[in-house]
Simulated assay, not measured.
Amino acid sequence: MGIGGSILLIVVGAIMTFGLDDTDVGPFNLDTIGWILQLAGLVGLALTLYFWNSRRRTVVSAAPPPPPAAGTVIPPSADEVIERRTRRY
């Protein structure tokens, strides 16, 4: 639905609930329809923001080096750097 569609539902629901004087059109009550549209817009907005927020968390880490060949001894080095990157927006 997206943020724009959710805000549109909220606005149309608010107009139907608070802006119209004649609340009954045939078998339909416009106040009830307006509240339902506002609730659907709020749920859609919350879901959109939740999924956008969860999509932005990424962690990039370097793959460990392959194990040395059999019988090879590699001395530990003080120059090794372990790098962990995180994206922050």
Rank of each mutant, 00 (worst) to 15 (best):
W35Y: 15
T72A: 11
S61Y: 01
D24W: 06
G19S: 09
D79F: 06
T72R: 10
A63M: 00
Y50H: 14
P27K: 09
T32P: 06
I3H: 00
L8N: 12
D79H: 04
F28A: 02
V12Y: 08
R88W: 11
V43G: 03
M1R: 10
L30K: 09
P27L: 13
D24I: 08
R87F: 11
I7F: 15
I7C: 14
A78M: 08
S61N: 09
P66Q: 03
R55A: 11
D24Y: 03
M1A: 14
S61R: 09
W35P: 05
L9H: 05
G26H: 05
G71W: 00
G71A: 05
L39A: 12
T23Q: 14
V81R: 14
L20C: 03
V60G: 00
P76G: 09
S6Y: 02
W35S: 13
D24V: 07
V73K: 03
V59L: 14
V73T: 10
M1N: 10
L45C: 04
G4N: 12
I10D: 10
V59K: 13
G41I: 00
D79V: 07
L47Y: 04
I36T: 09
D21M: 11
R57C: 05
L9T: 01
L42V: 08
P65K: 02
M1Q: 09
P66E: 06
R55F: 06
V73N: 10
L49P: 01
D31I: 09
R87D: 10
V43D: 01
L9C: 06
A63P: 05
P67M: 00
F51R: 15
T32L: 13
P75S: 08
G4M: 11
P75I: 08
A69Q: 05
D79M: 05
F28D: 04
S54Q: 08
Y50C: 11
M16R: 03
P64V: 04
R85M: 12
I74A: 02
A62G: 04
N29L: 03
D21W: 14
N29G: 06
L8E: 13
L9M: 07
P64M: 01
A63H: 02
I82H: 10
D79Q: 08
T17Q: 15
V11W: 01
V12G: 02
G13S: 04
L20Y: 10
G71V: 01
F51T: 15
T48Y: 09
F51C: 08
L37I: 03
I33P: 01
A46L: 05
G41E: 00
T86R: 09
A40L: 13
F28H: 07
V81G: 07
S61C: 03
Q38N: 12
L37C: 07
V25C: 13
L42C: 02
G4L: 12
V81Q: 15
V73H: 07
V81K: 15
Y50V: 15
Q38M: 15
S77L: 07
P65G: 03
L45T: 01
Q38R: 11
G71E: 05
G19I: 01
L37F: 04
T23I: 13
R55C: 02
P64T: 02
